[in-house]
């Protein structure tokens, strides 16, 4: 059994097999949010999506948004910075929970 076959991304539509209408609503929303220039450019959106793809560790999305970034004119330097933003947020999110740990230490009379 193999997980994460890159060819499966093309089969995304099939998820709508038992609820076509909900899937259509999702794709309409998805395309409007990510695939069009708005207050953010398509390139900025692709860089955000690339960063989120790394945080969520979705190989389909990493493939797809690497290409999207290139096709919207981004370069590897910008893409790398985007994933560093994601990585530093993840580190910060881990570390800020240290306060939670301190609160707990306090409640235990250890701080």
């Amino acid at each position: 059994m193999e997980y994460y076959d890159s060819k499966d991304l093309k089969r995304f539509n099939e998820v709508g097999k038992f609820s076509e209408d909900l899937m259509k609503k999702f794709f309409d929303y998805y395309n409007a949010a990510v695939g069009e220039d708005g207050a953010l450019t398509k390139r900025e959106k692709a860089l955000i999506a690339l960063a989120v793809s790394h945080v969520k560790q979705c190989p389909y999305c990493i493939d797809s948004y690497t290409t999207q970034c290139l096709e919207s004119g981004a370069d590897p330097e910008q893409m790398t910075e985007a994933i560093h933003v994601a990585a530093s947020l993840e580190a910060g999110i881990t570390l800020i929970h240290g306060i939670q740990m301190h609160n707990s230490l306090e409640r235990n009379g250890a701080l």
Partner: peptide, 11 residues
């Protein structure tokens, strides 16, 4: 590489 170009205006 194996990807399409971005918009001429933006580039």
């Amino acid at each position: 590489g194996a990807f399409l170009p971005a918009s001429q205006e933006n580039l």
